[in-house]
Design a protein around this nucleic acid. Structure first.
Lengths: 344, 344
DNA sequence: ATTATTTACGAAACCGTTTTCGTGGTTACT
DNA sequence: AGTAACCACGAAAACGGTTTCGTAAATAAT
C-alpha cells in the first residue's frame, strides 16, 4: 500500500527489526526470548522497538522448528446437541488456559466424513485430537494410523476401546440401570429402551445396564424390549410412533440420546399421549431446559463440561511433555439421574 | 513400535522422498504438483512412492510461503446457545467444502476476554475472523487493527457497524415489531421488553422495533417499558421475578435473547404464573425444542445456520481471491415469527 | 604475562515447503 | 553447421522463525 505510512502493515518480521536496528536476526530472536547472552541494553532496544512495531512472532513459523502448532482438533458428530456444545465449552476453557487453540470438525454421524477428517488431520495441522466417534468400528485403521504417526488421540464419551489411549466417559451402564430401576419402581410394566443403530460403546453399555435392571427385577424381557433407531429424523419418528401406537404399547421409555428424547416427546405431543400418565419417559440428555419441557423431563445428565475439560487436560498435559502416546486409562465421571415430572 | 514396519513414522517429508529417490527436493515438489517440467516417468516414480509413504505436505510449511494457514477463527460469546451452535454448524459446513478449518474462541460475554482473543489473532494464526461481538463499543481499536493488518473480519448477528466490512444479520427491528404487534393483537396491555445490558446493535434494534410497535398502536409507553438485564444468571432471575410480582405486573413479555427466554420461563414455572393465561411470552430464540416447552413457546427464530454459512462464504470467497478488505455490506436474512401456545 | 573463561553478538544451519533461476543435453529450425 | 528452442532436472533462495556454533573483545584465573 502506501510505503511510508507505517512499518506495521501485514506484521513486522524479526528480519525487519534486525535490519532496522542493524542487528543480526539471531540477536533479535534471542533478545526477544530474553536470552542471557544478550546485553540488557540491546534487549531494551529490541523490546522497545518490537513493542512499537507491534511485533508478534508468526506461530506457524516457530512451529516449524519444534513441529507443533498448538492447535488441537475436536471431532464430533454434531454441535446442535447440548452435550457436545457443553463439552466444547469445557475443552475450550482448558485450551485457553494452556495457550492452545481449538479446531472444530463435524462428522454429522457420517462415517465417511469422519474418515475424511481423520485423514486430513494426518497432515500435522494439529498437535492432538479429541474425538467422539461416529461408530465403534468405523475407522480403526485411520485413528490407529493417526495415533501411531505421532498425533495423540483422546476419546471422550463415544470412545473407541480398540485403541490404547486415554479416554473420558461417564457411567453409562450404571445410569441406565438406575433409570430402568426408577421406571420399574414407578410401576412401569412395558418399558421400551430406544437404542441408536451402530455399535457405539455408550449405547451398548446403556443397553446392557437397562437389560440388567430388567433381569434383576425378574421382569419379562419380552415385554421390555430394545428398539433400535437410526439417525434419520423422519424415519426414527415413524418408528417411535409405530411403537407408541402398537398393541401393548409401552408405559415407559428410556431414550438413550438427546435427539431420541426430543423426538419421543414430539411424538407424544402429536399423538396426545400424556406423560407421565400414559407413559413415563427418561432421557439421556444434557438439556439445560429439561425442567421447562411439557412435562419437565427426568434426565440422566452427563457432566459434559467436565468431560470435555478433563479430556482436553489429559491431551494438553501430554502435549506439553511432548508425550505422543498416552497411557491407556478410562476416566469415569458420573452422570446424575434427575427426577422430574415425566416419571410422575 | 515395530521399527522395521514402515518408514511413515511422524510423517514423511519431501526431503526424505528426494533422498530415497535420489532426486532433488525441488524435483519432487514439482512432480507432486504435476508440473510440466517433470517427465512422466519421474512423476510416476514420485507419485507412487509418495503414495506408499503416505506423504502429506505439512500445511504450515506451505503456508509460510504464501502466508496463509487456511484456518479461520470464529469468535462468539458462548456455545451453549442454540443460535450460536447452529451458526457454527453453518460455518463449518462452508469451511469444509472450501478446504478451510474452523477455530473456536469463546468470549463468555467478557469484553476483556474478547480483547485478549482478538489480540492473539493478530499473530497470523488465522486467515480471517468471523465474530459476534460482546459489546458494540468494546474493542474497536483491536478489531480495526486486526482488519487493517490484513486479517479480514466478517461480523454475524452481533455486528460492529463502526468497522467497514461485510456483515450478516437478521431483521431484528422488524421481528421485534411483529412480536410486539402480535402481543398487542392478543390483547396485552402491559408488555415488558427484556433487553440485554450493553450496547449491542441487535438489542438496540430489537428494542427500537418494539417501541415503534407500541407507539404505532397508540399504547401507553409508561405501561409498556423496557427492562434491561445483565448477563449474570441469578441477578437476572431476581430482576425478572421482581418484575413479574410487582404491582401491575406485565401480561406480556418479549425476551430479546435465548437465555432471557428460558430464564423467564423458569421464573413463571417457579411462581406458578400460568402462560398464556396470566402472561404471554415471545422469545428471540433458535431453540429447536421450543414446541416441547410448557407451554410451547412462540419464538422469533433466526436463520442461524444460514447466517453462519453466509458469513463464512463471504469471508472464504474473499480469502480465495486474496482480498483482505471486504466491501461494506449488510446481508439481511429474515427471522420467522412462529406462533405457539405461549401467546395463546 | 599467559591462559582460561565469560560476554555479546553474528553467521549459518535448520524446520518443510515453493519458486526462481541455472544448466547440460536434445531436438528443431534456417 | 549454427543457433534457437525446448526438456528434465538441480541449486539455491525464500517464507519467519529458533538454535547451534563460532569468535572477537573483555575479564578472570594462574
Amino acid at each position: 500500500m502506501n510505503p511510508n505510512v507505517f512499518y506495521g502493515k501485514m506484521g513486522v518480521t524479526i528480519k525487519q527489526i534486525a535490519a532496522d536496528l542493524k542487528l543480526a536476526i539471531s540477536t533479535v530472536s534471542k533478545a526477544l526470548s530474553d536470552s542471557h547472552e544478550i546485553s540488557p541494553e540491546t534487549k531494551a532496544r529490541v523490546f522497545e522497538y518490537a513493542e512499537r512495531m507491534e511485533y508478534k512472532p508468526n506461530p506457524y513459523a516457530s512451529g516449524l522448528k519444534d513441529n507443533r502448532s498448538r492447535n488441537i482438533a475436536v471431532v464430533l458428530p454434531e454441535i446442535a446437541d447440548s452435550f457436545f456444545a457443553s463439552a466444547i465449552d469445557g475443552i475450550e476453557a482448558a485450551a485457553q488456559t494452556k495457550g492452545y487453540h481449538v479446531m472444530i470438525y463435524l462428522t454429522h454421524e457420517d462415517a465417511q466424513r469422519e474418515h475424511a477428517i481423520i485423514s486430513e488431520l494426518r497432515h500435522r495441522r494439529v498437535d492432538g485430537v479429541l474425538i467422539s466417534v461416529v461408530s465403534n468400528s468405523s475407522d480403526i485403521p485411520h485413528l490407529q494410523g493417526l495415533y501411531e504417526h505421532g498425533v495423540p488421540v483422546v476419546f471422550f464419551d463415544r470412545v473407541h476401546t480398540a485403541i490404547d489411549t486415554a479416554n473420558v466417559v461417564t457411567n453409562d451402564f450404571d445410569s441406565a440401570y438406575s433409570a430402568a430401576s426408577l421406571l420399574i419402581r414407578k410401576g412401569c410394566k412395558r418399558i421400551t429402551f430406544l437404542a441408536l443403530r451402530g455399535d457405539l460403546n455408550i449405547i451398548k453399555d446403556r443397553t446392557a445396564g437397562y437389560l440388567k435392571a430388567i433381569n434383576d427385577h425378574g421382569i419379562d424381557t419380552q415385554l421390555n424390549p430394545v428398539l433400535t433407531c437410526g439417525h434419520q429424523e423422519d424415519e426414527t419418528m415413524t418408528l417411535i410412533r409405530q411403537r407408541l401406537t402398537q398393541e401393548d404399547s409401552p408405559d415407559g421409555v428410556i431414550c438413550s440420546s438427546e435427539k431420541l428424547t426430543t423426538q419421543t416427546y414430539s411424538v407424544c405431543h402429536r399423538l396426545k399421549i400424556s406423560i407421565p400418565e400414559d407413559i413415563k419417559i427418561i432421557g439421556f440428555s444434557h438439556l439445560p431446559i429439561a425442567s421447562l419441557l411439557r412435562p419437565s423431563l427426568t434426565t440422566v445428565t452427563q457432566p459434559a463440561f467436565e468431560m470435555g475439560r478433563t479430556a482436553a487436560t489429559l491431551l494438553l498435559n501430554a502435549l506439553d511433555k511432548k508425550r505422543t502416546i498416552l497411557k491407556k486409562e478410562s476416566i469415569v465421571l458420573p452422570s446424575m439421574l434427575i427426577e422430574r415430572d415425566s416419571t410422575g
